[in-house]
Design a binder for these strands. Structure first.
Length: 303
DNA sequence: GACAACCTGACC
DNA sequence: GGTCAGGTTGTC
C-alpha cells in the first residue's frame, strides 16, 4: 500500500495517539513478521518463535518517545534506546483504537464497520496493548511487511545498509540534478522508483509526478533539460505534499489509524486509469509494464 | 533489465 | 482458471 505520504500520515496520527504511552503487553500472532536486531546481508532472517517471544519481552514497559519516518519506514522511538522499524510493504496497516472506543459497544461497532473487520482479525499479526488500555493492531493481508526491534546503533546500521537516497520533500534542485547526472541512462520511471536514488516514491506518485511534469516514464533522465528537471522535482514535491494534506491515497487496504480513508485517491490523474481520457488532452491513457511495474501515462502529452 | 519470489484477495 | 495489486530482494 503505502508510499511516503501514507507512511507520513500514519506517523502523524500515531504521534498524537502514542506519545509517552507505556507498552503493557505485546501479542505476536505470526512470528515471521518480527525481526530482532539488524538484518544480515544475504540472509533474510525469518522471525522465529524465540525471536518473537524475545520481541514481546523487550517491549514490555517501554514508553513511546516519538515517531519518525525515513523513506517508507515508520520508526517508533522507545525509552531505553530501543526502536521499532516498521515497513508496511504492500498491505500493512496500523490501526489504533483508544480504550474509550474499545469499551463502548456502540463506538466499537462503528469502528469495526469503518475498518470493515473485527480486531484482532485473521490478518492481525501483532497487537500492542498500552497501560491505559489503548490498543494498536498491525494487520497485513499479504504478509510482506515486518516489524523490527533495533537499538539506536543497529538502526543506523540497518538504514545505512539500505543505502536509501535522499528524502524527496527536502531535496534541493542542485542535488537532484547531480543525482540525475549519476543515473542518466535510467528511464524516468525506474529512476523514481529506485529507493537508492530517491527514497519514498512508489508507483502511484511516480506516475502522477511524471504526468504533471509532462515527462514520459520511458524517457532517459539524462536527456532532461534543466527546466524539465526543475519541473519534475517541483511536481514530485507538490504531489507528495498534496497527498499528505489529504491523508494519503486509500486504495483498498490503506486506512488512517482511526479507520478513516485517505482522500488523495480522488485526486489521481493517471494512476490506474488506463483507457480513460487524459485530463490534459483527452487522448486515452496508455498503460504498459516498465521494470515489472505498470505505468499509466499519456503518450500524447508526456514526452 | 527482466523475472520470480514472498502472500492473500479481488475481479474477470 | 488466470491476472492483477501500494514493495523489495535475489537470481539470471
Amino acid at each position: 500500500m503505502p508510499e511516503l505520504p501514507e507512511v507520513e500520515t500514519v506517523k502523524r496520527q500515531l504521534q498524537k495517539s502514542l506519545k509517552s504511552k507505556q507498552i503493557k503487553e505485546v501479542f505476536v500472532y505470526m512470528d515471521k513478521m518480527i525481526k530482532v536486531g539488524p538484518a544480515k546481508i544475504s540472509n533474510l532472517k525469518i522471525g522465529s518463535k524465540k525471536s518473537s517471544r524475545n520481541f514481546a519481552a523487550l517491549l514490555k514497559n517501554k514508553r513511546v518517545l516519538g515517531l519518525d519516518r525515513r523513506a517508507k519506514y515508520l520508526i517508533i522511538r522507545l525509552s531505553g534506546g530501543g526502536n521499532l522499524m516498521i515497513h508496511l510493504r504492500m498491505s500493512g496497516q496500523l490501526i489504533f483504537l483508544p480504550k474509550k472506543v474499545l469499551k463502548n459497544p456502540l463506538t466499537l461497532s462503528l469502528a469495526k464497520t469503518a475498518i470493515k473487520q473485527t480486531l484482532p482479525s485473521k490478518h492481525t499479526h501483532v497487537e500492542f496493548i498500552f497501560s491505559n488500555g489503548d490498543k494498536l493492531f498491525y494487520n497485513d493481508t499479504r504478509q510482506f511487511g515486518h516489524i523490527r526491534f533495533v537499538t539506536d546503533k543497529e538502526m543506523k546500521n540497518v538504514l545505512s545498509q539500505q543505502k536509501l537516497g535522499p528524502e524527496p520533500l527536502t531535496l534541493k534542485l542542485k542535488e537532484f540534478s547531480e543525482i540525475i547526472k549519476r543515473h542518466s541512462s535510467k528511464r524516468a520511471k525506474d529512476f523514481l522508483l529506485n529507493q537508492e536514488v530517491i527514497a519514498g516514491i512508489g508507483n502511484i506518485y511516480a506516475d502522477e509526478s511524471l504526468f504533471i511534469s509532462k515527462i514520459s516514464p520511458l524517457r532517459k533522465v539524462g536527456s532532461l533539460k534543466p527546466d524539465q528537471q526543475k519541473l519534475l522535482l517541483q511536481s514530485i514535491q507538490k504531489v507528495l505534499q498534496e497527498a499528505i494534506k489529504l491523508g494519503g491515497s486509500s486504495i483498498e487496504s490503506f486506512l488512517m489509524t482511526n479507520g478513516t480513508a485517505g482522500k488523495f485517491s480522488d485526486q489521481h490523474l493517471v494512476y490506474a486509469k488506463e483507457g480513460k481520457p487524459c485530463p490534459r488532452c483527452g487522448k486515452p491513457l496508455h498503460a504498459q509494464k516498465i521494470g515489472s511495474r505498470t505505468s499509466t501515462f499519456c503518450t500524447n502529452c508526456q514526452k
